[in-house]
């Protein structure tokens, strides 16, 4: 068994619209619902924890990690939760999560939207750090052992 887990994925698309409009489409709760979740509860301001509602699949909390108007928008979530019936409504930062980043660049044709989701391979380390901080035990040593186990394959 191959021992490594890819840490991130990157996709991109060029949209015939100015950066300002693209930024609104990804960071305004009233616009993001036009192409992504069915509904958003709460704001998408920096540091907020809105819920993305994916209808029959349920809701998931996201944590808005960075907002740089017209250039960059990033949030943390539980990857894949938009396709899991029931969703997850606990605190997103209580579980291992991934970082979703949108970077916008001007191009002659409009705006290049670069999407990156990362943290797949570092899920264990992130969670271990929190577990140590929370002094709750369990995760830290479990995850390091799990990593070792998976690496040995």
């Amino acid at each position: 068994m191959n021992s490594t887990l890819q840490d991130s994925i990157e996709r991109q698309i060029t949209v015939r619209a100015p950066k300002e409009r693209v930024f609104q489409a990804i960071s305004d709760p009233e616009q993001i619902v036009k192409w992504f979740p069915d509904a958003v509860e709460g704001s998408l301001d920096l540091g907020s924890r809105p819920y993305f509602d994916f209808g029959s699949y349920g809701k998931v909390q996201v944590f808005v990690e960075a907002v740089e108007p017209n250039d960059y928008f990033a949030y943390r979530w539980l990857t894949g939760c938009d396709e899991v019936p029931g969703g997850y409504t606990g605190d997103v930062n209580d579980l291992a999560n991934t970082l979703v980043e949108f970077r916008l660049e001007d191009t002659p044709d409009g705006t290049l939207v670069r999407l990156k989701e990362s943290g797949f391979a570092s899920l264990p380390a992130d969670r271990a750090e929190r577990a140590l901080k929370d002094n709750s035990g369990g995760w830290d040593s479990m995850m390091s052992r799990l990593e070792t186990y998976l690496a040995q394959g």
Binding site: L5, Q6, V15, V22, A25, K34, T79, L115
Partner: peptide
């Protein structure tokens, strides 16, 4: 690993939806 490769397709679909909206 399979999940991660599927996820690329899902993000492509989402970005296409963004493009259509805009």
């Amino acid at each position: 690993k399979q999940y991660i490769s599927d996820l690329q397709l899902r993000w492509d679909r989402r970005l296409e939806a963004l493009q259509r909206y805009l």
